[in-house]
Design a protein around this nucleic acid. Structure first.
Lengths: 345, 345
DNA sequence: ATTTAGCACTCCCTTTGCGAGAGTGCCAGT
DNA sequence: ACTGGCACTCTCGCAAAGGGAGTGCTAAAT
């Protein structure tokens, strides 16, 4: 990794910044005129040649301006990563929105997706927090009609799962309530692990429901992450990368398949800590469909208890200086909310 | 409305069909060669002139082929509306998917959106069924942590609403259960209307919860329709209408704002019966953003009890012969499911 | 009376050529 | 070490030219 002189650094930064909002290859003359650096275009040309040599810039064709390479973006991002903060007023506006919304996970996720999309002008994706070990807290059985029973399962930490069961034959609400009460006494505080070793129950209904509870708890833990929320798809459609090339558009397909999206999120953030951002530029050789895109992602939540992931996808040319602080800030905010929600346990 | 000769009719059908999958203006020669009608291109030209005169076709410019007008599409649609049926094998595949999915509304809606999108290659939208009058069936109060209480409200017909309440001070589960039991005895079978006239309760907790229940029931009835599910956005992005013109792309913005989408669905289907399809071609002068699009929609469910809406959006050039039967079939399927779900009441 | 063949015409779309403009690399001079 | 100058390259936009597809009309054939 060659080192850059101070001048090369500022030049590189300027070029990338210019390209990000013009989407046009940037040339030496333009640079010398628009930004008041006291350098002639010739000097800039020399430096550009050096930067090109080092792999930070490239020319679409001989005698066009320069365009940043993935390497260039990476350098740019690593330079401004730490310093960047969202303006305080914006921070306040966002927090305010969160604290005045209805205190429900669903609302928070939707809001987070919306904030991310609007601030970054990219496509946002938020995966709901997912518990790592689930402990039983309470089960409720409510007869809805005929043989159908609504089972509501509440976990320590507040996660709720509801499911409709269809029993072999109609059962009165009283009997259901009895079963629920017995199971509550028996299971409170237990993990799925512990429950699976319990011996058989005398009442056949108790036994059936116990199995269903267990199955549901397992499902909760096994699924890789929580539900997915996205927003801002249309933001990106007007960007030249997406409206012109088929290739970038293919990246959007990922957002229609929750499974592959979860995959991407968990895979790329699995080895990173809560609080640390990750910036994937140009698919990093791994994801073909993202070759023209960048992805800024972060984990949030309370490690060991419940964590989720969120991020923003945009063209490689996206406004990192806006996206990165936003992702960081929203991740922090959600971490606080999750932690508030858990602490009361 | 001028009447068409049999020959003009078949010609019009062919032209539209050809344009639908070529996206190119279709000329007389091409028509004479590709489809083995025993007519010379000259004759076809005469008929085309007549059809143009009548307003079913138009020429982008002198001496280009013909393109269907909105009027043309309307004729086309009204001609094939009734006869069109989905092939039996497809019908079976789809039903099969529904009956083997978990019997939950959420699953069904997602599946319906997916089937519609795949079959029609357009963007699908499904609004969950919404009850017209809600009667109370059961309330459950579960302390989750500290002052937070999960309220689960079940309506006659099986609709479920859950909400987290934050009380002024912590309350023991026993007391919550007592309140729930008392309210259940009191409210079963009542409408929101009736409940609002009830006199005050002695226990202050009972009173508070009663108000919250009432509020929630009102919210359920008031919201115009159920939650919105969509799928297939990317299907449409590769169509020339969307990848070339900004205008068509603007139509997709509607899909990012659940509110405006619900509006559209309810407004356009409010005066139509369950089971009747509606086909909006080119926004029908009403919706500017849909000028280049068509929309096939239907209501489903059980009138008077619970109904929802679903539909497919595509370019005006969409494959009606595939979309219309699919929408009709899926609407029927969902109607059956909803009706099964209600009948047991 | 209807259909068809032929013809002249119109308009789009692509190709071609050319000049302007922007940018580059390099060299020589400050 | 920087800058001015110069020759060179390549894109882009524009205009002109040619091909192609399609049309409308008329006159002949069925």
């Amino acid at each position: 990794m060659p080192t850059l002189t101070e001048r090369q650094k500022t030049l590189l930064m300027l070029i990338i910044r210019d390209y990000i909002d013009s989407a046009q290859p940037v040339g030496s003359k333009r640079l010398a005129e628009h930004y008041h650096i006291n350098l002639s275009s010739a000097t800039i040309r020399n430096e550009m040649a050096a930067l090109t040599e080092m792999g930070y810039l490239r020319q679409p064709h001989t005698s066009a301006g320069r365009v940043p390479t993935e390497e260039g973006y990476r350098y740019f991002v690593s330079e401004m990563m730490h310093s960047a903060e969202l303006p305080e007023t914006v921070q306040h506006t966002i927090s305010h929105q969160f604290y005045q919304s209805r205190p429900e996970l669903d609302q928070w996720m939707t809001l987070a997706a919306s904030v991310l999309a609007n601030q970054s002008q990219g496509v946002s994706v938020v995966a709901a927090p997912h518990v790592e070990t689930t402990k039983f807290k309470h089960v409720e059985l409510i007869s809805t009609q005929g043989r159908q029973v609504l089972m509501v399962l509440v976990m320590l930490g507040g996660e709720v799962s509801q499911q409709i069961l269809t029993l072999a034959e109609p059962v009165a609400q009283e009997r259901l309530s009895g079963t629920a009460t017995r199971l509550n006494g028996l299971l409170t505080g237990q993990t799925a692990q512990a429950i699976s070793t319990l011996t058989a129950r005398p009442d056949p209904l108790d036994q059936d429901i116990l199995l269903l509870v267990l199955q549901d708890m397992r499902r909760l833990v096994e699924k890789a992450s929580g539900e997915i929320y996205t927003d801002g798809l249309t933001n990106v459609l007007s960007e030249p990368e997406f409206s012109e090339s088929d290739e970038a558009r293919r990246a959007l397909k990922i957002f229609e398949e929750p499974a592959s999206l979860q995959d991407l999120l968990t895979k790329t953030t699995s080895n990173s800590n809560v609080g640390a951002l990750q910036v994937l530029i140009g698919g990093e050789g791994e994801y073909d469909d993202l070759r023209q895109c960048s992805l800024v992602i972060a984990r949030y939540g309370v490690p060991g208890m419940a964590t989720g992931a969120l991020g923003v996808l945009g063209p490689m040319r996206m406004s990192y200086s806006r996206t990165i602080p936003t992702v960081r800030f929203v991740a922090g905010l959600l971490s606080d909310l999750v932690s508030d929600n858990i602490s009361g346990e």
